[in-house]
Every structure is written in C-alpha cells, then in structure tokens.
Simulated assay, not measured.
Amino acid sequence: MDGTATDQFSMTAAELSFLLASGDRPGEAPRLLGLTDADRADAVLSAGIGSLLLRHLAAPVEGNRIDLAPAVAAVAAALHRPRAFVQVGLTADDHADGALLIDADRFRFLVGGRAYRCYDITPIAADTDVRDPLLAVADRFLHRHRPAVATFNATSAFDFARGVQPARTALSAAADGTWTVVGVDGTASAAADFDAAAALVRDELATMLLPSAQAQQ
C-alpha cells in the first residue's frame, strides 16, 4: 500500500485489535470498526499477533519485536493517524451491510465487515477519486436489493472525536426502479436511473468529503 496497491486482502478482528493496541493512540477507529473493550483483552491481542505470524503478515525480529508486511504496516499507520472517515450504510428490507473508508492522507482503504468477525481490506490507489469506490459499494448493493438505501456519512477524525454530526447524503432505489437522492441540505431529487442518481451523489460528496476527493474534480 504505497499509494498504488489495489489488491484486496482480509484481516480478523483480533489482528486489527493487535494493530490498534500497538500504536500510541487507538483514536476513534475501534468504535467505527465495531470493536469493543473486550477486543483489547490480552487473549484477543495474543490471538491477533499469532494469526499475523501464522499467515506471514508479520515476522519476528530481534528484541522480541515483529516486522509487519508492507500492506499491514500501511493499515496500522492509517488506523493510528486517520484524517477522515466515510461510513457507507446499506439497508434493505431483509439485508444490511456497509463499509468504512479510512483516509490517512498517504494511505486510504475501504473496510468491509464479513462473517466470523473478519474484514475485507481494499486499498485505494493515490490517483483514485475516492467517490468511485464508495459509489461502487452502493451500486452492487442497490442492484441486488430493492427497495434499498445507501447512506454516506463523512467526517474528519477531529470532528468525529468531538461528537460533531457527520455530513450525510443518501441514495435510495425503490421497488419500481425509481431512484432518489437526498442531499446534505435535506433536499430530495428524483433520478431516472442509477447513473443519473450517482452523478447527483458525486456532487454531494464533493461538498462533504475529503480534500483528496475535491481535488479530483
């Protein structure tokens, strides 16, 4: 994850907990990832380091220390020094899902929760407009489940820590194939199809998102 890597990989909750515990400040990332105080227990952290070593995502070095694989080291750096977050909430009548974008300036990645407390980690290349992977997450869900809603919540790490409400926009797909976008100001706009709706969401995200997204306009 040097800014160009794009290969997806997976990590367990214990592995992520170990990375968070290894830094000087866990910040708000544990709460956004759904990790709790129980995930900081010694047994969980031991399981995390053991799993990283077993999967060759870390290697022991002198002085009872470990070296992390480059991709894992990048995830650790982003978890400890996030600049901003975007939460994507996906809801339908019989299904729910979501993803979390963590932006740490040099490193950006999407985290998706999966079964058995595992997470898919998808790096985002430095030259990628972050709106593209966010909308791709919504696209896949909304075309599989209708009626359904994708909600985007964006906030800086500083504001999130202070409890400031995130900026929000939502994209919904009705059972009859119609699309609606609710902007940051609460205004609802109808769209003829997903592409038209996505264009509206892109405009909304540009006003609420990260500087890296705005710079791509």
Rank of each mutant, 00 (worst) to 15 (best):
I102T: 04
V75A: 09
A115K: 09
V86S: 04
V137L: 02
R140M: 11
R117Q: 12
D129E: 11
V72K: 09
A148E: 06
A69V: 10
R108F: 03
D159K: 04
D94F: 02
E62T: 15
V72C: 07
A150R: 02
V137G: 04
V61P: 09
P82Q: 04
V137A: 02
A157V: 03
S156G: 08
V61A: 14
A74V: 08
T91P: 03
E62A: 15
D127I: 08
D97R: 01
G63T: 10
R81E: 14
A92R: 04
D132C: 03
V61T: 12
A71P: 06
N153S: 15
A78F: 03
A126G: 06
D97E: 07
A154F: 01
R144E: 06
T155Y: 01
D93S: 11
D97K: 01
T122R: 15
V61M: 07
A99F: 11
G98C: 05
A96G: 10
R140A: 15
H80V: 06
A92M: 03
V130Y: 00
A150D: 03
V75Q: 00
A96M: 02
A136T: 11
F141M: 06
A157K: 01
R81Q: 09
L101P: 07
L100M: 10
F109E: 02
T151M: 08
R144N: 12
Y116H: 12
